[in-house]
Design a protein around this nucleic acid. Sequence first.
DNA 1: TTTATATACGATTAAATTTGTCGTATATAA
DNA 2: TTATATACGACAAATTTAATCGTATATAAA
Lengths: 131, 131
Amino acid sequence: MLKITKKVEYALIAIRHLQENQDALVSVSDLSASYGIPKEILAKTLQKLASANIVKSYKGPTGGYKASKKIAKTTLNDFFEILEGPTAIMDCYFQDGCDHLNSCNIRTPINKINDSIRNLFNNLTLADISQ
Amino acid sequence: MLKITKKVEYALIAIRHLQENQDALVSVSDLSASYGIPKEILAKTLQKLASANIVKSYKGPTGGYKASKKIAKTTLNDFFEILEGPTAIMDCYFQDGCDHLNSCNIRTPINKINDSIRNLFNNLTLADISQ
DNA sequence: TTTATATACGATTAAATTTGTCGTATATAA
DNA sequence: TTATATACGACAAATTTAATCGTATATAAA
C-alpha cells in the first residue's frame, strides 16, 4: 500500500529529463527509448502534464515536449492529482459513500491521516525533491 | 494510489472498538457482525496485531481480544509495517532491484518523498489520530 | 472427559486495480 | 503530399488486493 503508480514514476523521469535539458524539444520516442518506458503510456502521461501546463507540447515532425517554468513551483499534491486525481487514503475522504455507514468509527483517524499527508504534499514542491 | 488497504482499515476499526471498551474481551465474531467485516480476514489481521503485542488474545470459548497499553504509543509507521511490511512508495527504496538500472534519474526524488512520508508516520501515534 | 467455541495459520479462489496495447484522429514541418 | 509528432478513447493482460476454505490447537463449561 501507499505505492506510487507507474504513471507517476514515468512522469517524474520525464520531468527530470526535460529539466536537465531545458531548451531541448524531446519526443516521447526519445524518452521511451532512453528509459525503457512503454511509448503509449508515457505519451498519455505527458499529455496530462501538458494540459496542466507542467510541460509544453509541440505537434508535428520535429515536435515533442519542453519543460515549462511552472514545474519547479508545482507542489507534489498538484503533481499527483494531475495524474491520479484527488489524494485520499480512502475514497470516503471525498465522500464516495461509505461501506460501514452509521457503524463507522474511524472517520476521525482517517481524516487526520489524510490531512497530514495532504499537508505534507502541499508543502513540498518538485524543486524541493530534486536537490 | 497511496490508498490504505482493507487490512489497515479493519485493524483501525478493531483497535478503536477495543480502546473504547477497554476491559472487555471481544471476539472476532462480535466485531465482524458489528462492523460488517469478513470474519476470516479480520481474524488474520488481529492475529498480526496480537503477535506484535498491539492487542492481547485469549483462546477458547469466552476468549477474544483486548486492547493492550501499547496501542496508544504505537506509531503509524509501526502500525502499517506490522500489517503491510516496509513503508515504501517504490520497491527500490528497500533495494529490490531496479527496472531502469543505470538510466534511473529519479532516485533522489523518490528517496526524498519516501523519507518525508516515513518521517511523518514515525511522528504520529495511534493516540494522535484518535482525538 | 466430552463438547462447543474461540484463536492460529496456510492454501486457494475471486475481485479489483493497475499496466500495457491497439486503433484512429489531428497537427505540422519538410 | 508525405512522414512524423501529439491527442485520445477502447480494450486486454498482468498484478495486487480481498475474500474464502480447510484444518489444527487451546480452553471453558457441561
